[in-house]
Design a protein around this nucleic acid. Structure first.
Length: 422
RNA sequence: GUGGGCGUAGCUCAGUUGGUUAGAGCGUCGGGUUGUGGCCCCGGAGGCCGAGGGUUCAAGUCCCUCCGCUCACCCCA
Protein backbone atom coordinates (compact mmCIF):
# COMPACT_ATOMS: atom_id res chain seq x y z
CA UNK A 1 0.00 0.00 0.00
CA UNK A 2 1.63 3.19 -1.13
CA UNK A 3 1.27 6.34 0.88
CA UNK A 4 -1.32 8.77 -0.36
CA UNK A 5 -2.27 12.33 0.43
CA UNK A 6 -5.16 12.78 2.85
CA UNK A 7 -8.61 12.89 1.28
CA UNK A 8 -9.46 16.37 0.07
CA UNK A 9 -5.82 17.47 0.37
CA UNK A 10 -4.04 17.83 -2.95
CA UNK A 11 -0.46 17.99 -4.06
CA UNK A 12 0.13 21.06 -6.17
CA UNK A 13 2.40 19.79 -8.92
CA UNK A 14 4.78 22.07 -10.85
CA UNK A 15 2.43 22.79 -13.75
CA UNK A 16 -0.38 23.84 -11.46
CA UNK A 17 1.99 25.67 -9.15
CA UNK A 18 2.97 27.89 -12.07
CA UNK A 19 -0.66 28.73 -12.75
CA UNK A 20 -1.14 29.60 -9.12
CA UNK A 21 1.91 31.81 -9.23
CA UNK A 22 0.34 33.67 -12.12
CA UNK A 23 -2.91 34.10 -10.22
CA UNK A 24 -1.17 35.33 -7.11
CA UNK A 25 1.05 37.69 -9.06
CA UNK A 26 -1.96 39.20 -10.79
CA UNK A 27 -3.89 39.51 -7.56
CA UNK A 28 -1.02 41.14 -5.71
CA UNK A 29 -0.57 43.61 -8.50
CA UNK A 30 -4.22 44.58 -8.36
CA UNK A 31 -4.26 44.74 -4.56
CA UNK A 32 -1.11 46.82 -4.28
CA UNK A 33 -2.37 49.05 -7.06
CA UNK A 34 -5.45 49.80 -4.98
CA UNK A 35 -3.41 50.57 -1.89
CA UNK A 36 -3.95 47.36 0.03
CA UNK A 37 -1.29 45.87 2.28
CA UNK A 38 -0.62 42.22 2.88
CA UNK A 39 -1.23 40.61 6.24
CA UNK A 40 -0.40 37.01 7.12
CA UNK A 41 -2.03 35.45 10.10
CA UNK A 42 -1.50 31.91 11.46
CA UNK A 43 -3.29 28.96 9.96
CA UNK A 44 -4.05 27.75 13.47
CA UNK A 45 -6.21 29.76 15.85
CA UNK A 46 -7.94 29.06 19.11
CA UNK A 47 -11.28 27.51 18.29
CA UNK A 48 -12.98 30.39 20.07
CA UNK A 49 -11.97 32.82 17.32
CA UNK A 50 -14.11 31.00 14.80
CA UNK A 51 -16.84 29.81 17.11
CA UNK A 52 -17.57 33.37 18.16
CA UNK A 53 -16.81 35.00 14.86
CA UNK A 54 -18.53 32.74 12.38
CA UNK A 55 -21.47 31.74 14.54
CA UNK A 56 -22.03 28.70 16.72
CA UNK A 57 -24.88 27.39 14.63
CA UNK A 58 -23.36 27.61 11.21
CA UNK A 59 -22.49 24.42 9.37
CA UNK A 60 -18.87 25.47 9.29
CA UNK A 61 -18.54 25.60 13.04
CA UNK A 62 -20.88 22.74 13.81
CA UNK A 63 -19.47 20.11 11.54
CA UNK A 64 -16.79 21.27 9.16
CA UNK A 65 -13.90 22.53 11.24
CA UNK A 66 -10.65 20.70 11.82
CA UNK A 67 -10.58 21.08 15.57
CA UNK A 68 -8.30 19.29 18.01
CA UNK A 69 -6.61 19.60 21.36
CA UNK A 70 -2.92 20.27 21.44
CA UNK A 71 -0.55 18.76 24.00
CA UNK A 72 -1.62 21.29 26.60
CA UNK A 73 -5.28 20.55 26.14
CA UNK A 74 -5.94 23.81 24.33
CA UNK A 75 -8.68 23.68 21.69
CA UNK A 76 -7.29 24.72 18.33
CA UNK A 77 -8.78 24.94 14.84
CA UNK A 78 -7.33 25.04 11.36
CA UNK A 79 -8.82 28.21 9.92
CA UNK A 80 -11.93 27.58 7.79
CA UNK A 81 -11.89 31.16 6.51
CA UNK A 82 -9.67 34.21 6.86
CA UNK A 83 -11.75 37.05 8.22
CA UNK A 84 -12.05 36.02 11.85
CA UNK A 85 -8.30 35.50 12.21
CA UNK A 86 -7.49 38.81 10.56
CA UNK A 87 -9.93 40.63 12.81
CA UNK A 88 -8.34 38.91 15.80
CA UNK A 89 -4.92 40.16 14.69
CA UNK A 90 -6.19 43.68 14.05
CA UNK A 91 -7.67 43.79 17.53
CA UNK A 92 -4.68 42.15 19.21
CA UNK A 93 -2.21 44.60 17.69
CA UNK A 94 -4.61 47.55 17.83
CA UNK A 95 -3.91 48.20 14.17
CA UNK A 96 -7.01 50.40 14.04
CA UNK A 97 -5.07 52.99 16.02
CA UNK A 98 -2.53 53.32 13.25
CA UNK A 99 -5.05 54.23 10.63
CA UNK A 100 -8.80 54.80 10.54
CA UNK A 101 -9.08 52.50 7.53
CA UNK A 102 -7.16 49.26 7.11
CA UNK A 103 -7.10 47.82 3.64
CA UNK A 104 -5.70 44.32 3.98
CA UNK A 105 -5.28 41.28 1.82
CA UNK A 106 -4.02 37.78 2.44
CA UNK A 107 -3.49 34.66 0.40
CA UNK A 108 -3.39 31.17 1.78
CA UNK A 109 -4.92 27.83 2.61
CA UNK A 110 -8.21 27.29 4.46
CA UNK A 111 -9.56 24.03 5.80
CA UNK A 112 -13.05 22.63 5.88
CA UNK A 113 -14.02 19.01 6.45
CA UNK A 114 -16.55 18.67 3.64
CA UNK A 115 -17.06 15.95 1.08
CA UNK A 116 -14.77 16.86 -1.83
CA UNK A 117 -16.24 17.51 -5.25
CA UNK A 118 -15.58 19.70 -8.25
CA UNK A 119 -14.29 23.05 -7.02
CA UNK A 120 -14.33 21.94 -3.41
CA UNK A 121 -11.43 20.57 -1.42
CA UNK A 122 -10.75 20.15 2.27
CA UNK A 123 -7.64 22.25 1.98
CA UNK A 124 -8.40 25.05 -0.41
CA UNK A 125 -6.95 28.47 -1.05
CA UNK A 126 -8.39 31.93 -1.00
CA UNK A 127 -7.40 35.42 -2.01
CA UNK A 128 -8.84 37.50 0.77
CA UNK A 129 -9.60 41.20 1.16
CA UNK A 130 -10.73 43.08 4.24
CA UNK A 131 -11.57 46.79 4.50
CA UNK A 132 -11.74 47.47 8.21
CA UNK A 133 -12.82 50.77 9.72
CA UNK A 134 -15.12 52.25 7.14
CA UNK A 135 -18.90 52.29 6.99
CA UNK A 136 -18.88 53.97 3.63
CA UNK A 137 -20.77 52.22 0.86
CA UNK A 138 -17.73 52.98 -1.26
CA UNK A 139 -15.79 50.48 0.82
CA UNK A 140 -18.34 47.82 -0.15
CA UNK A 141 -18.05 48.83 -3.79
CA UNK A 142 -14.25 48.72 -3.63
CA UNK A 143 -14.30 45.20 -2.30
CA UNK A 144 -16.65 44.08 -5.06
CA UNK A 145 -14.48 45.89 -7.57
CA UNK A 146 -11.42 43.94 -6.44
CA UNK A 147 -13.22 40.62 -6.67
CA UNK A 148 -14.49 41.43 -10.14
CA UNK A 149 -11.15 42.69 -11.41
CA UNK A 150 -9.26 39.61 -10.34
CA UNK A 151 -11.77 37.10 -11.56
CA UNK A 152 -12.33 38.80 -14.89
CA UNK A 153 -8.60 38.66 -15.55
CA UNK A 154 -8.90 34.89 -15.81
CA UNK A 155 -12.48 34.25 -16.84
CA UNK A 156 -14.57 35.25 -19.80
CA UNK A 157 -16.71 38.17 -18.67
CA UNK A 158 -19.70 36.70 -20.46
CA UNK A 159 -19.48 33.70 -18.16
CA UNK A 160 -19.62 35.82 -15.02
CA UNK A 161 -22.60 37.00 -13.10
CA UNK A 162 -22.40 39.29 -10.11
CA UNK A 163 -25.30 39.07 -7.71
CA UNK A 164 -25.95 41.78 -5.13
CA UNK A 165 -28.24 41.91 -2.14
CA UNK A 166 -28.65 43.58 1.22
CA UNK A 167 -29.25 41.53 4.34
CA UNK A 168 -30.35 44.52 6.36
CA UNK A 169 -28.99 45.45 9.74
CA UNK A 170 -29.76 44.58 13.39
CA UNK A 171 -32.57 47.13 13.23
CA UNK A 172 -34.49 45.80 10.26
CA UNK A 173 -33.33 42.23 9.86
CA UNK A 174 -35.14 40.80 12.92
CA UNK A 175 -38.49 42.02 11.58
CA UNK A 176 -37.98 40.16 8.36
CA UNK A 177 -36.71 37.11 10.12
CA UNK A 178 -39.73 36.99 12.37
CA UNK A 179 -42.15 37.19 9.46
CA UNK A 180 -40.17 34.67 7.48
CA UNK A 181 -40.18 32.17 10.33
CA UNK A 182 -43.89 32.68 10.69
CA UNK A 183 -44.41 32.17 6.97
CA UNK A 184 -42.37 28.98 7.01
CA UNK A 185 -44.29 27.70 9.99
CA UNK A 186 -47.63 28.32 8.29
CA UNK A 187 -46.51 26.52 5.16
CA UNK A 188 -44.42 23.70 6.64
CA UNK A 189 -46.27 21.10 4.62
CA UNK A 190 -45.19 22.59 1.32
CA UNK A 191 -41.45 22.44 1.99
CA UNK A 192 -38.97 19.64 1.57
CA UNK A 193 -37.33 17.99 4.56
CA UNK A 194 -34.17 20.02 4.21
CA UNK A 195 -36.06 23.28 4.22
CA UNK A 196 -38.06 22.27 7.26
CA UNK A 197 -34.81 21.68 9.04
CA UNK A 198 -33.34 24.96 7.80
CA UNK A 199 -36.41 26.85 8.98
CA UNK A 200 -35.42 26.25 12.57
CA UNK A 201 -31.70 26.84 12.28
CA UNK A 202 -31.05 29.40 9.57
CA UNK A 203 -34.33 30.45 7.97
CA UNK A 204 -32.69 32.60 5.31
CA UNK A 205 -31.13 29.47 3.90
CA UNK A 206 -34.42 28.16 2.54
CA UNK A 207 -34.01 30.70 -0.24
CA UNK A 208 -31.03 28.66 -1.45
CA UNK A 209 -33.07 25.49 -1.91
CA UNK A 210 -32.91 24.01 -5.37
CA UNK A 211 -36.19 22.18 -5.01
CA UNK A 212 -38.69 23.62 -7.49
CA UNK A 213 -41.68 23.12 -5.22
CA UNK A 214 -39.97 25.01 -2.43
CA UNK A 215 -39.09 27.82 -4.80
CA UNK A 216 -42.71 28.03 -5.93
CA UNK A 217 -43.91 28.55 -2.39
CA UNK A 218 -41.08 30.97 -1.68
CA UNK A 219 -42.47 33.34 -4.27
CA UNK A 220 -44.96 34.35 -1.60
CA UNK A 221 -42.45 34.51 1.22
CA UNK A 222 -41.47 37.80 2.80
CA UNK A 223 -38.40 39.21 1.06
CA UNK A 224 -35.74 41.21 2.87
CA UNK A 225 -36.02 44.02 0.37
CA UNK A 226 -39.44 45.02 1.72
CA UNK A 227 -38.28 45.14 5.32
CA UNK A 228 -35.06 47.03 4.90
CA UNK A 229 -34.79 50.27 6.91
CA UNK A 230 -34.16 53.60 5.13
CA UNK A 231 -30.51 53.66 6.21
CA UNK A 232 -29.86 50.22 4.75
CA UNK A 233 -31.72 51.07 1.58
CA UNK A 234 -29.71 54.22 1.07
CA UNK A 235 -26.50 52.34 1.73
CA UNK A 236 -27.41 49.69 -0.82
CA UNK A 237 -28.33 52.33 -3.38
CA UNK A 238 -24.95 53.98 -3.03
CA UNK A 239 -23.12 50.71 -3.38
CA UNK A 240 -24.97 49.91 -6.58
CA UNK A 241 -24.39 53.43 -7.94
CA UNK A 242 -20.69 53.03 -7.33
CA UNK A 243 -20.65 49.72 -9.16
CA UNK A 244 -22.28 51.35 -12.13
CA UNK A 245 -19.66 54.08 -12.05
CA UNK A 246 -16.99 51.38 -11.97
CA UNK A 247 -18.68 49.86 -15.01
CA UNK A 248 -19.23 46.55 -13.28
CA UNK A 249 -22.36 44.73 -14.43
CA UNK A 250 -24.51 43.14 -11.73
CA UNK A 251 -27.96 41.82 -11.01
CA UNK A 252 -29.91 42.09 -7.81
CA UNK A 253 -30.88 38.83 -6.18
CA UNK A 254 -33.30 39.34 -3.32
CA UNK A 255 -32.76 35.75 -2.21
CA UNK A 256 -29.01 35.88 -1.92
CA UNK A 257 -27.92 35.07 1.63
CA UNK A 258 -24.69 34.14 3.37
CA UNK A 259 -23.68 31.13 5.36
CA UNK A 260 -21.83 33.03 8.02
CA UNK A 261 -23.65 34.84 10.79
CA UNK A 262 -21.54 37.94 10.81
CA UNK A 263 -22.71 39.45 7.55
CA UNK A 264 -24.83 42.63 7.52
CA UNK A 265 -26.16 44.80 4.74
CA UNK A 266 -24.18 44.28 1.54
CA UNK A 267 -23.71 40.74 0.42
CA UNK A 268 -22.59 39.53 -2.98
CA UNK A 269 -21.57 36.51 -4.97
CA UNK A 270 -19.68 36.34 -8.20
CA UNK A 271 -20.76 33.21 -10.03
CA UNK A 272 -19.31 31.64 -13.12
CA UNK A 273 -20.57 29.24 -15.73
CA UNK A 274 -18.59 26.09 -16.16
CA UNK A 275 -17.75 25.53 -12.54
CA UNK A 276 -20.24 22.77 -11.84
CA UNK A 277 -22.38 22.82 -8.74
CA UNK A 278 -19.93 25.03 -6.85
CA UNK A 279 -20.49 27.98 -9.09
CA UNK A 280 -19.41 30.77 -6.78
CA UNK A 281 -15.89 31.92 -7.54
CA UNK A 282 -15.85 34.90 -5.19
CA UNK A 283 -18.14 36.18 -2.47
CA UNK A 284 -18.25 38.52 0.44
CA UNK A 285 -20.10 41.22 2.28
CA UNK A 286 -20.23 43.63 5.17
CA UNK A 287 -19.65 42.48 8.72
CA UNK A 288 -19.96 45.53 10.98
CA UNK A 289 -20.62 43.63 14.20
CA UNK A 290 -17.80 41.15 13.97
CA UNK A 291 -15.08 43.14 15.68
CA UNK A 292 -17.07 43.67 18.85
CA UNK A 293 -18.18 40.04 18.78
CA UNK A 294 -14.50 39.16 19.04
CA UNK A 295 -14.02 41.50 21.95
CA UNK A 296 -12.61 44.43 20.03
CA UNK A 297 -13.87 47.97 19.44
CA UNK A 298 -16.96 48.40 17.31
CA UNK A 299 -15.24 48.52 13.92
CA UNK A 300 -17.19 48.36 10.69
CA UNK A 301 -15.78 46.10 8.01
CA UNK A 302 -16.39 44.60 4.62
CA UNK A 303 -14.51 41.84 2.85
CA UNK A 304 -14.46 39.17 0.23
CA UNK A 305 -12.72 35.98 -0.78
CA UNK A 306 -11.85 34.52 -4.15
CA UNK A 307 -11.61 30.74 -4.36
CA UNK A 308 -8.27 30.00 -6.01
CA UNK A 309 -9.13 26.43 -7.05
CA UNK A 310 -12.30 27.68 -8.71
CA UNK A 311 -10.40 30.41 -10.46
CA UNK A 312 -8.00 27.73 -11.67
CA UNK A 313 -10.96 25.86 -13.14
CA UNK A 314 -11.91 28.95 -15.12
CA UNK A 315 -8.38 29.67 -16.29
CA UNK A 316 -8.26 28.50 -19.88
CA UNK A 317 -5.11 30.13 -21.19
CA UNK A 318 -2.09 27.92 -21.47
CA UNK A 319 1.02 29.23 -19.83
CA UNK A 320 3.95 30.11 -22.00
CA UNK A 321 6.54 27.33 -21.97
CA UNK A 322 9.53 27.99 -19.76
CA UNK A 323 12.51 29.39 -21.61
CA UNK A 324 16.18 29.24 -20.78
CA UNK A 325 18.45 31.92 -22.22
CA UNK A 326 21.32 29.56 -22.70
CA UNK A 327 22.14 25.88 -22.54
CA UNK A 328 25.77 24.90 -22.28
CA UNK A 329 26.73 21.56 -23.79
CA UNK A 330 30.17 20.58 -22.56
CA UNK A 331 32.12 17.54 -23.73
CA UNK A 332 35.01 16.22 -21.70
CA UNK A 333 36.29 17.06 -18.23
CA UNK A 334 38.33 20.08 -19.18
CA UNK A 335 35.52 21.81 -21.07
CA UNK A 336 33.10 20.89 -18.35
CA UNK A 337 35.12 22.52 -15.60
CA UNK A 338 35.50 25.67 -17.65
CA UNK A 339 31.77 25.61 -18.41
CA UNK A 340 30.92 25.49 -14.72
CA UNK A 341 32.84 28.70 -14.21
CA UNK A 342 30.89 30.38 -17.02
CA UNK A 343 27.59 29.03 -15.71
CA UNK A 344 28.20 30.50 -12.28
CA UNK A 345 29.15 33.85 -13.76
CA UNK A 346 26.24 34.03 -16.19
CA UNK A 347 23.66 33.02 -13.64
CA UNK A 348 24.85 35.73 -11.29
CA UNK A 349 24.32 38.16 -14.15
CA UNK A 350 20.68 37.12 -14.16
CA UNK A 351 20.68 34.83 -17.17
CA UNK A 352 18.71 31.62 -17.17
CA UNK A 353 21.37 29.03 -17.85
CA UNK A 354 21.00 25.26 -17.86
CA UNK A 355 23.29 22.34 -18.58
CA UNK A 356 23.46 18.60 -18.23
CA UNK A 357 24.39 17.15 -14.86
CA UNK A 358 25.25 13.90 -16.56
CA UNK A 359 28.11 13.19 -18.94
CA UNK A 360 26.01 12.68 -22.05
CA UNK A 361 26.51 12.69 -25.79
CA UNK A 362 26.28 16.01 -27.62
CA UNK A 363 23.11 14.83 -29.26
CA UNK A 364 21.52 14.06 -25.93
CA UNK A 365 22.60 17.42 -24.58
CA UNK A 366 21.12 19.20 -27.58
CA UNK A 367 17.85 17.45 -26.97
CA UNK A 368 17.93 18.62 -23.41
CA UNK A 369 18.64 22.15 -24.60
CA UNK A 370 15.59 21.95 -26.80
CA UNK A 371 13.42 20.77 -23.94
CA UNK A 372 14.67 23.60 -21.78
CA UNK A 373 13.47 25.99 -24.50
CA UNK A 374 16.97 27.42 -24.79
CA UNK A 375 17.41 30.34 -27.15
CA UNK A 376 21.10 29.60 -27.52
CA UNK A 377 23.26 26.57 -27.04
CA UNK A 378 26.94 26.96 -26.34
CA UNK A 379 28.95 23.99 -27.50
CA UNK A 380 32.37 23.40 -26.05
CA UNK A 381 34.53 20.28 -26.30
CA UNK A 382 38.19 19.39 -26.61
CA UNK A 383 38.38 20.86 -30.07
CA UNK A 384 37.02 24.23 -28.93
CA UNK A 385 39.31 24.23 -25.92
CA UNK A 386 42.31 23.74 -28.21
CA UNK A 387 41.20 26.39 -30.66
CA UNK A 388 40.18 28.70 -27.81
CA UNK A 389 36.84 29.34 -29.48
CA UNK A 390 33.47 27.91 -28.43
CA UNK A 391 30.48 27.53 -30.73
CA UNK A 392 27.30 29.50 -30.03
CA UNK A 393 24.28 28.11 -31.80
CA UNK A 394 21.05 30.05 -32.20
CA UNK A 395 18.50 27.31 -31.65
CA UNK A 396 15.89 28.92 -33.82
CA UNK A 397 17.85 30.08 -36.84
CA UNK A 398 20.48 27.32 -36.49
CA UNK A 399 23.16 29.92 -37.14
CA UNK A 400 26.44 29.23 -35.39
CA UNK A 401 29.31 31.52 -34.56
CA UNK A 402 32.62 31.23 -32.77
CA UNK A 403 33.08 32.94 -29.42
CA UNK A 404 36.54 33.66 -28.12
CA UNK A 405 37.19 31.80 -24.88
CA UNK A 406 39.08 34.72 -23.34
CA UNK A 407 36.17 36.93 -22.38
CA UNK A 408 33.40 34.56 -23.33
CA UNK A 409 31.09 35.20 -20.37
CA UNK A 410 31.13 38.97 -20.91
CA UNK A 411 30.39 38.57 -24.60
CA UNK A 412 27.50 36.22 -23.90
CA UNK A 413 25.96 38.50 -21.29
CA UNK A 414 26.01 41.39 -23.67
CA UNK A 415 24.73 39.40 -26.61
CA UNK A 416 21.89 37.70 -24.79
CA UNK A 417 20.80 40.70 -22.79
CA UNK A 418 20.61 42.92 -25.85
CA UNK A 419 18.59 40.25 -27.59
CA UNK A 420 16.18 40.10 -24.68
CA UNK A 421 15.45 43.80 -24.96
CA UNK A 422 14.23 43.56 -28.47
C1' G B 1 -23.56 11.98 6.41
C1' U B 2 -26.62 10.23 1.60
C1' G B 3 -26.78 8.83 -3.59
C1' G B 4 -24.75 7.87 -8.85
C1' G B 5 -20.32 6.88 -12.03
C1' C B 6 -15.42 4.95 -12.40
C1' G B 7 -10.62 2.09 -10.89
C1' U B 8 -5.69 -1.82 -16.77
C1' A B 9 1.95 1.40 -17.86
C1' G B 10 3.88 8.36 -15.71
C1' C B 11 -0.82 10.30 -18.78
C1' U B 12 -5.32 9.16 -22.10
C1' C B 13 -7.42 4.67 -23.04
C1' A B 14 -8.12 -0.55 -25.94
C1' G B 15 -8.69 -5.52 -24.17
C1' U B 16 -13.51 -9.78 -28.57
C1' U B 17 -18.93 -15.05 -25.93
C1' G B 18 -13.85 -16.00 -19.31
C1' G B 19 -8.61 -19.21 -22.75
C1' U B 20 -1.97 -19.36 -23.15
C1' U B 21 3.97 -14.45 -22.96
C1' A B 22 -1.85 -7.87 -21.11
C1' G B 23 -1.75 -3.87 -25.86
C1' A B 24 -1.86 1.25 -28.39
C1' G B 25 -1.01 6.54 -28.54
C1' C B 26 1.49 10.28 -25.80
C1' G B 27 5.56 10.88 -22.44
C1' U B 28 10.43 8.95 -20.98
C1' C B 29 15.40 6.82 -22.23
C1' G B 30 18.66 5.12 -26.18
C1' G B 31 19.96 4.46 -31.43
C1' G B 32 19.66 6.06 -36.93
C1' U B 33 28.31 5.86 -38.24
C1' U B 34 33.34 9.68 -36.43
C1' G B 35 30.72 16.01 -32.05
C1' U B 36 24.65 19.21 -33.43
C1' G B 37 17.97 19.71 -31.00
C1' G B 38 12.63 19.87 -32.94
C1' C B 39 10.01 16.17 -37.72
C1' C B 40 10.60 11.03 -39.21
C1' C B 41 12.23 5.77 -38.50
C1' C B 42 13.95 1.80 -35.06
C1' G B 43 14.51 -0.05 -30.17
C1' G B 44 14.44 -0.22 -24.53
C1' A B 45 12.52 0.60 -19.77
C1' G B 46 7.93 0.88 -17.40
C1' G B 47 1.71 -2.98 -15.23
C1' C B 48 0.74 -7.97 -7.95
C1' C B 49 -5.03 -5.24 -14.48
C1' G B 50 -7.17 -0.75 -6.84
C1' A B 51 -7.15 -4.68 -2.52
C1' G B 52 -9.11 -9.23 -0.43
C1' G B 53 -12.22 -13.34 -0.95
C1' G B 54 -15.32 -16.61 -4.17
C1' U B 55 -17.01 -19.39 -8.82
C1' U B 56 -14.06 -22.14 -12.67
C1' C B 57 -9.60 -26.76 -15.57
C1' A B 58 -8.80 -21.39 -16.58
C1' A B 59 -10.53 -14.53 -14.19
C1' G B 60 -8.23 -8.00 -16.43
C1' U B 61 -13.05 -10.17 -17.98
C1' C B 62 -18.32 -13.30 -13.69
C1' C B 63 -20.07 -12.75 -8.10
C1' C B 64 -19.31 -10.60 -3.02
C1' U B 65 -16.74 -7.34 0.43
C1' C B 66 -13.54 -3.43 1.26
C1' C B 67 -10.59 0.76 -0.33
C1' G B 68 -9.73 4.80 -3.50
C1' C B 69 -11.12 8.52 -7.08
C1' U B 70 -15.03 11.37 -9.09
C1' C B 71 -19.80 13.93 -9.71
C1' A B 72 -24.16 15.40 -7.21
C1' C B 73 -27.10 16.30 -2.57
C1' C B 74 -25.73 19.16 1.69
C1' C B 75 -22.82 23.42 2.39
C1' C B 76 -19.80 27.05 0.47
C1' A B 77 -14.75 30.24 -1.86
Amino acid sequence: MTLKAVKGFKDILPEEARKRQRIEETARQIFEGCGLEEIRTPILERTEVFARGIGEHTDIVEKEMYTFEDRNGQLLTLRPEATAGILRAVIEHKLYNKSPLLKLYTVGPMFRHERPQKGRLRQFHQLNVEYIGSSSPLADAEVVFLAYEIVSKFADQDDLILEMNSLGCPKCRPLHRKDLVLFLKNNVEDFCEDCQRRAGLNPLRVFDCKNEECQAVLKFAPVIKHYICPECAIHMGKVLDALEAFEIPFVQNAYLVRGLDYYKRTTFELKARGLGAQSTVAAGGRYDGLSSLLGGPDLPGVGMAVGVERLLLLMKEELAPRRADLFIAALGDEARTEALYWIGYLRRQGLKVEYSLEDKSLKAQMKQADKAGARYCLIVGEREMDEEEAILRDMKTKEQEGIDLDDLPEILVEKIKSQGDE
